[in-house]
Amino acid sequence: MGKVVVVTSGKGGVGKTTSTAALGAAVAKTGKKVALVDFDVGLRNLDLIMGAERRVVFDLVNVIQGTAKLSQALIRDKRLETLYLLPASQTRDKDALTEEGVAEVIARLRSVFDYVFCDSPAGIERGAQLAMRFADEAVIVTNPEVSSVRDSDRIIGLLDARTMKAEQGELIQKHVLVTRYDAARAARGEMLSIDDVLEILSTPLLGIIPESQDVLRASNLGSPVTLSEPINSAAKAYLEAARRLEGEDLPVVVPFERKGFLDRLLGRRAA
């Protein structure tokens, strides 16, 4: 039986899809069978980030409505043979998803794959709730900004109330993944500190992904950063987060700004 992990955040634009792709690829690299499911029906993105947009024939809605088989809709990654993508439909809306349909698709994926990553749409409406509905674990993607943290807090509340596991009285395991962390801005006090974020969310930390142009570039080139540039600092942070997700006990190091000689000479100091 595989594990179903929902990647969610509440707020849009914090890096859910990028993180789904990067974490999924990182886990698949270790030889585990991984399926990435895009729940953002109507605004699909995961296929682009995975570089599979020109191979989409069938999608999640087709499978739920019975017009395609699950095996037909799953797209195998060209770089990793253990990595699969189930794309969302761009032409339908979220009402095309039914709870029974999603339940069946997830159950079948769970029986075949070791990990099923559900990329949640932004918001707290039907699409986001269905994405988290059957999850065993949740990765809450948060930027160190007040608005993002508050939305994440709201999502954690929903995870504890509306998921199948929570309704059965079990605890859904939750992890916070801080993305777009800018060490320089954090040092100047322009961002919430990691301690502040964790204090507000009171949820264990999965990793800290530094803000990086390489992540954006990799996304635009259609390749998760963990596959295309594994030596990059953001990729390393994702790879470590994936190991923690698999249960490894790795300490999290808060990224710091390397100060240049000039900075020191000019006596620039952190606030």
Partner: peptide, 21 residues
């Protein structure tokens, strides 16, 4: 958590954790 509302009209409420914005 944010967005949650606790309504307890006939007694005290004790919260051991934090109460979110």
């Amino acid at each position: 958590r944010s967005g949650q509302s606790v309504f307890h009209p006939h007694g005290d409420v004790i919260v051991l954790g934090s109460v979110a914005s």
